[in-house]
Amino acid sequence: MSNTPAAADSRSPGTEDTAVAVLQPDTAAKAFVGRSPGQLAWIRLKRDRTAFASFIIVVFFILIALFAPVISRLYGVTATEGFSDKLTYQGLPTGYLGGISGDHWLGLEAGIGRDLFMQLIFGMRTSLIIAFLSAIISIVLGVVLGIVSGYFGGWVDQSLTWFTDFMLAFPFLVFALAIIPIINTASYDVGEEVPGSFRIAVIIGVFALFGWMTTARLVRGQILSLREREYVEAARAAGAGSAHILFKQLLPNIWAPILVSFSLALPGFIAAEAALSFLNIGVVEPTPDLGRLVYYGRQWLGTPDWAYFLIPASTVFVAVLAFNLLGDSLRDALDPKSSK
């Protein structure tokens, strides 16, 4: 009989196991889960120790800039408050290493008597505001011009490419040294003080004017390789307009190079802003600024108050280095082939 124990034992030993495997797929297969390019980039970024360290430093500087007024209230000293009573007749702070004490964690500015810690906090705030706004405006300009140039082609591409090359031919530093003082003096009457906010706006405008070209060329190259893809042709066939194709179909596919371009533009703007202030062209008194601190501190290198120069110079160096390393790590994470 077919239902006897002998008949049951005559089945192949692996038959039951095979049936179970078909009804219950191997759980190991569930471990292979598809990940998006963004998720893969995030995984690679978390494994990069350099990226992690630079990210911590960048976040630290950003938090300091954001909460500078709160830090000032907790610290009990403002950025412009002077302590001339704690200076010698030569203008040097009393005490060691520029007057470092429990009341003044990084000492006092030689010759002025302001708290150096507060000057650094608000100076970083000024630098990051200028850098972030300049980067955002320049990236937006570069993306728009690059997309339009690469997608439409023809005379539009030729005109924008020529204009981009024309702007790249201008020496940025020479132009900034010439145009910033002219704009400041032409906007206000003789003897009238130029507000610090206006000076900052002029610097941001000049940076944005000369910061979009690299992004525009990068985006143009990406669009040239994407505009003939199947999904773009399908959008055209469906009757989608040019604006929809540009900003709904093409732009989401080039977010990675745009993000890398933004992250690499920030340290350049921080260094450029510090250089202009060092040359007394950028932010001036009484607005705190890192570049001006370095300029004032250089004359005290041969004195016991050498920390007055070393502290702000090291702050600029660490900030620019951290932003650069984070940008490089982000680029490698989004495009692993770039490091090979």
Rank of each mutant, 00 (worst) to 15 (best):
N3K: 15
A8E: 13
G14I: 14
T18Y: 14
V20W: 13
V20R: 13
V20D: 15
A21V: 09
T27L: 15
A28E: 12
A29V: 15
A29Y: 13
K30W: 13
A31N: 13
A31L: 14
F32G: 15
P37V: 06
L40Y: 12
A41C: 01
W42T: 11
R44G: 06
T50P: 02
T50Y: 13
I64G: 01
A65H: 00
I71G: 02
L74F: 13
Y75T: 10
G76T: 05
G76I: 05
A79T: 03
T80P: 03
T80E: 10
D85R: 10
Y89L: 15
L92D: 10
Y96H: 12
G102A: 10
H104F: 07
A110I: 00
A110T: 09
G113C: 02
L116C: 08
L120A: 01
T126P: 03
S127T: 06
I129H: 03
L133R: 07
L133G: 06
V140N: 08
G142V: 01
I147A: 07
V148S: 00
S149Q: 01
S149W: 00
G150H: 03
L160D: 01
L160I: 12
F166S: 14
M167Y: 07
F172M: 11
I179G: 02
I179P: 00
I180F: 10
P181E: 04
N184E: 12
A186V: 05
S187G: 09
D189I: 15
V190D: 13
V190F: 14
E192W: 09
R199C: 06
I200F: 02
V202H: 06
V202Q: 05
V206W: 04
F207P: 04
A208M: 07
W212S: 00
T214D: 15
R217V: 08
L218K: 06
R229P: 04
V232N: 01
A234V: 10
A240E: 11
S242V: 15
S242Y: 12
A243W: 14
L250F: 06
W255G: 14
P257V: 03
V260I: 07
S261I: 01
S263N: 09
A265E: 09
P267E: 00
A275P: 05
S277T: 06
L279N: 02
L279M: 06
I281G: 07
L290N: 08
G291H: 05
G297M: 02
G297P: 00
Q299V: 14
W300H: 10
L301H: 09
F309P: 02
L310G: 03
T315G: 06
L321Q: 11
F323C: 10
N324I: 04
L325F: 11
L330E: 08
K337C: 09
K340C: 15
